[in-house]
């Protein structure tokens, strides 16, 4: 395991989030605190309905917590994500955050390369030949360069997820959030995806948070969190008994 910086780049502090009102009121997160470090890939597990996706959404700036703070390193300074205006938060996400989801959500009409280019073009990162070059470079790292002109219908599930990873990483984000990135794939492709994510963290210094049900992912991560009934605890990576 590579040396990990001692200063976190993303901190969730005393996060609480409830859904519904009155009798239906239900706490998905209860006083959760978590720190993510650069170059580190973290796994978040827990039973269904334990609040994993909720935590991911709150940390990534998609869902506002009821209380608590999300402090993120943006240009060397820690900023409270939920104290920003929506416009500021959008710009912050554009600068810093990548997402991968269980469904690949690729545009059916666009080629693999264009799926990456659209982020670079519309995000104002790179246009024209430069955008194409950066997209190809990313696809090359993912072993997808030969498939760059294929549309999603011509790609396998694993290949599609690799394109989706490319789309998340192409703008070189500080944070990457992945919700069940392997659960639509067979184990072989799931492994490949985890390797790519791990390389993304270790080579690029990104903080990656992976949400999953699958214990087989443990060997690919640097830290492991368990969430149950809205409470979070860090667990050792080697299961007891080893």
């Amino acid at each position: 395991m590579p040396a990990i910086s001692t200063t976190p780049t993303l901190r969730g502090v005393h996060l609480t989030r409830t859904y519904g009102d009155g009798a239906k009121r239900r706490a998905a997160l209860q006083d959760v605190s978590i720190s993510l470090y650069p170059g580190q890939i973290a796994l978040l597990m827990g039973p269904s309905g334990s609040g994993k996706s909720t935590l991911l959404a709150v940390l990534s700036g998609l869902l506002e917590p009821d209380s608590g703070q999300v402090l993120a390193d943006d240009g060397g300074e820690m900023h409270d994500v939920w104290a920003m205006t929506p416009k500021q938060r959008e710009a912050y996400r554009l600068r810093t955050t990548g997402f991968i989801f269980q469904g690949f959500n690729l545009f059916p009409a666009l080629t693999a390369r264009q799926q990456l280019e659209i982020v670079l073009n519309w995000g104002g990162y790179a246009a024209g030949g430069e955008g194409r070059r950066q997209a190809d470079e990313m696809l090359d790292r993912l072993g997808m360069l030969p498939n760059r002109s294929k549309k999603p219908s011509q790609l396998s599930g694993g290949e599609k997820q690799r394109v989706a990873i490319g789309r998340a990483l192409v703008k070189n984000p500080s944070f990457v959030f992945a919700d069940e990135p392997t659960s639509a794939l067979d184990w072989e492709n799931g492994q490949k995806v985890m390797e790519l994510l791990r390389d993304g963290a270790h080579d690029r210094g990104a903080s990656i948070l992976v949400v999953s049900h699958d214990h087989r992912l443990l060997p690919y991560v640097d830290v492991y969190y368990h969430l149950e009934d809205g409470h979070l605890e860090e667990r050792p990576l080697t299961p007891p008994g080893h």
């Binding site: 990534s60 998609l62 959008e90 710009a91 912050y92 996400r93 554009l94 600068r95 955050t97 990548g98 997402f99 989801f101 469904g103 959500n105 690729l106 545009f107 659209i118 982020v119 519309w122 995000g123 789309r167 998340a168 703008k171």
Partner: peptide, 18 residues
Amino acid sequence: ASAKEFAILLALGIPRWR
């Protein structure tokens, strides 16, 4: 039909006007 793809772009911080 493209709502999910567009949603990804929004999550990535691409402005809605695009």
